[in-house]
Design a protein around this nucleic acid. Structure first.
Lengths: 165, 165
DNA sequence: GGAGAGTTATTTAAGTTTTAACAACGCCGG
DNA sequence: CCGGCGTTGTTAAAACTTAAATAACTCTCC
């Protein structure tokens, strides 16, 4: 077993390097932008908002911690902290899972639902303004396609597909 | 001056919503992946690595703090902390700016350069494996184009273009 | 049934990021 | 020259994330 690179590393071509710069700039700017927008208008960062969205779409607004973490692409640890905070806000409550004594369900409260409904229009508007009102229909399809390919390569091996929709 | 939305919010279409999910998943997975890869192989997160890259490309491996922050798309505060950490590692050193007594130059040390050179091949390989070896030439162009459009809408108004390359 | 292995969720500590406030300096106009 | 205003970079405190360790529970297999 050896660690040295099998060959001279294949560097990025000019086009690739350029695309990579563009990608990094765009994604960090967007994430920052959405974080600020939501922090200002809803009092929480983007990831936390995403958790509420997930819960709002789940049956009975409840979801097991692990499932929620997987859907949101975050670690269980991070989720624990996040839910603790959201619980303090009164937007989520924890419940013991009846079928598995280890388990917890995160439950979006009515108040959490209200907060979400109040924040959603502004958030959608921000997302629109940053992306979908700027791209052609064609480009939106291309973006989805590209991101799918990326995800395939990054998804932990054997992650249970189908993973979206 | 009123705050209510002028009209019913325009929600995302199915295609847009799908693309948005794909985007969020792909970008968070990639960022996590690169963070882990670099943490493991180079002892620093992706953003910090990006700072070293910027410095390595600058004349005399030096750059003013504000300029570095702008290029890396992070706040000056965040940069201060980051440079403090990198300085502790011996990879960067601060120097007073001769022309402006308020200013500081971040200087990539020889040791920092070695760390960077050692980490670069693995990092490029990871980026390749996640993106560029999976996308067609056409898609790479599309990605760059899309990210450019996004960036245009997010760049702080009047940011001094031309901003890349 | 029970040992061993895997799963679920949390906790602790360390590291990172954000926000707001601040000190120090440069620049411009009177 | 000097007062006001903008800039540069840092800092303190709070918030957030990560990594590793842990307690409690389930599952598998004999």
């Amino acid at each position: 077993m050896s660690n040295e690179p099998a060959t001279e590393p294949r560097w990025l071509s000019d086009e690739e390097q350029y695309a990579w710069q563009c990608y990094l700039h765009a994604t960090t700017l967007l994430e920052d932008h959405l974080d600020r927008q939501l922090q200002r208008d809803a009092g929480m960062p983007h990831v936390y908002y995403g958790l509420l969205v997930q819960l709002s779409r789940a049956p009975r607004r409840r979801m097991r911690m692990t499932e929620l973490a997987q859907n949101a692409k975050i670690t269980r640890s991070r989720l624990s902290h996040a839910i603790a905070r959201l619980e303090k806000n009164g937007w989520v409550r924890r419940e013991n899972c009846p079928s598995d004594k280890r388990g917890q369900n995160a439950h979006l409260t009515d108040e959490g639902m209200r907060v979400l409904e109040k924040a959603a229009p502004g958030h959608v508007a921000a997302v629109r303004a940053a992306i979908f009102d700027r791209l052609s229909t064609e480009q939106i399809g291309q973006l989805a396609e590209i991101c799918q390919v990326m995800t395939e390569g990054l998804q932990p091996q054997g992650a249970d597909l189908p993973w979206l929709r």
